[in-house]
Amino acid sequence: MLAIMKREIRAYFTSPLGYVFLAVFCGFSGLFLWLNCLNLGSSAMGGVFQMMFFINVILIPVLTMRTIADDKRQKTDQLTLTSPVSLFGIVAGKFLGAFFVFFCASIVLIIYAVFLSFAVSAADSRFEWAMFWGHYTGLVLIGMLFISVGIFISSLTESQMIAAIGSIGLNIVICMFDIISNYISNDTLAGIVNSLSVYYKYSEFTQGIFSLKNTVFLLSITAVFNFLTIRVIERRRYA
């Protein structure tokens, strides 16, 4: 697992992919920081995190598109699948590799927060660190979820392009549950659909509410998609 993770991280940074991801992530988060905080003279970063959700819907699939699809295309899966590593180890290695890059990118938000806290304290006010960590946890959790979705879609195809577009599509569907629930007349069903809404769970984080329930929910969805990825790879061996 560690070997695969190391290789994944290396691959991100020997190709432009890792750098492009970091650059776009930093660029957009900087833009939203300016729009939501600097421009308005506010130190509340909720708006930034809210916007980063939508950026991640599109950006993370770019990060994960090649994970398994490219292995299949280049036949390097013949190496990983015939070496003494479990399928769990392979998927976990890929997941952690992509997560590492995402995590590196997300550190920029902590840096922004540090700067904001200095600016705020200079103005004799307090920066809401507790609130910030609530936002940040939400972002990390949603990043993990999108990464697991991306790897899952990547395991279904040999084409990176299809993997990226498919994951963006699935991410959007996952996020649209609460919109869909508005159109369901049956209250019970609408309640169920709404309770599956990832965006709703995330927006609670961006409002500064840290809830264990939401954390467990997002982590479970991540686990489910990673499990599905393992099943897809295993299924292919029987095909």
């Binding site: 290789r7 190709s15 036949k75 013949q78």
Partner: peptide, 9 residues
Amino acid sequence: EIPPLYLDM
């Protein structure tokens, strides 16, 4: 049949 090589390494 096709050596499983990571071409970027």
